[in-house]
Simulated scan of single mutants.
Amino acid sequence: MNDIPDRVPTPCPSCSPDLETVHEVLTEGGGALTVRCSECGHVHKIQPETRREVTLDVVVSQEGESFTANVTTPEDEVVEVGDEFILETEEVLSTVRVTSLELDGHRRTEAAPADEIETVWTREVDNVAVNVTVHPKDGSRDDSRSVTVYVPGDYEFEVGDTETFGDDEFEIDAFVVRGDATGYDRDRYEMDGDSIVAKDAKRVYAYDQTSSAWSAW
């Protein structure tokens, strides 16, 4: 991934040797940047600042199991719950989402610079398991049952839609949002048209639509 910006602040040897001015980055090569001063147009080379990096321990939860890995990131990079990144190891290549951050002394936080973090807790979100509570057609809750569906993380559930998974067919009634999801303004949605992607869903509620008679067994 190229982290070189389009513009950088740096002194200009022609018009501003003591103060930084905005420079346009023209090319990168040999560890140096060729830049053009936005004040006078002078072109010169600079050495970009090297950001120190740290290696973080990452725990990945994946369908009830977990494994550990490592990632390297700039020490001043702020990591937050809800962030997603690609984790690449010899065994796996997957997208994971930060669910918790552990600092020194087993303290937990929602966000912190990378150099303060002991462990990053994550879960895999490329493919996810979604728990669905299915109520009988008649609306009673006594014989409700729970099913688990396995879908891509970006699979969308919408209130009012009918879904079919194997022998199960049900109409979405509501859903509850995971605590690590972002972009939602409340925990529960139940209006027709409300939607959520699978990786953000803590639980989906639905009414049975199968043609066979309802059975709790």
Rank of each mutant, 00 (worst) to 15 (best):
F165D: 01
V197F: 04
R123G: 06
G105L: 06
N131T: 03
G153S: 09
V159C: 03
H135L: 15
T182E: 09
D143T: 10
D154V: 13
L93W: 10
G179K: 07
L101E: 01
F85N: 03
R141S: 10
V125H: 14
L87F: 05
D161I: 01
V197P: 02
E163A: 02
I86V: 14
D154G: 15
V120E: 11
V132C: 04
F175C: 00
G160I: 05
H135A: 14
V96A: 13
R145M: 15
D180C: 06
D161C: 04
D173R: 04
A111C: 09
D143W: 15
D192L: 10
L101T: 07
D208A: 08
V159K: 01
D104P: 08
E88D: 10
M191K: 15
A114Q: 04
D180P: 12
E169Y: 04
A112F: 09
D115T: 01
R141W: 02
T133P: 02
I196V: 08
E102L: 02
A201C: 10
D126F: 04
W121R: 09
F175W: 03
F175S: 01
G179H: 06
Y184T: 01
D167M: 14
V204Q: 00
R203N: 01
V177N: 06
R97V: 00
L87A: 07
S100C: 12
S146T: 13
D143A: 07
Y207K: 07
Y184E: 00
R123K: 15
K202R: 15
V151S: 06
R186I: 03
D208Q: 14
A174W: 02
D143Q: 12
G166S: 07
E90F: 05
E163Q: 00
M191P: 01
D187A: 12
V204L: 07
F175L: 03
R108N: 07
S144A: 15
G139L: 06
D161R: 01
W121A: 09
A129Q: 13
Y184F: 15
K137Y: 09
V204H: 00
G105C: 11
I172Y: 00
Y155E: 10
V98L: 07
A129W: 12
S146E: 05
A198I: 14
L87W: 12
V159E: 05
E163V: 00
V98P: 08
T162A: 08
V134F: 13
E124N: 10
S215I: 13
S211E: 12
G166T: 01
A174M: 08
D138F: 11
T95W: 07
D115K: 13
V92T: 05
V96D: 14
F157V: 00
L101V: 10
V130G: 00
D168W: 11
D142S: 08
D208L: 05
D187T: 11
D115R: 14
D115P: 05
L93G: 07
T164N: 08
R178S: 08
Y189W: 05
T122G: 05
T122C: 13
A112R: 06
P136V: 06
V151N: 04
E84L: 13
T164H: 09
T99K: 11
P152E: 08
R145Y: 08
K202D: 04
A198H: 12
R141F: 10
E158I: 01
T210S: 14
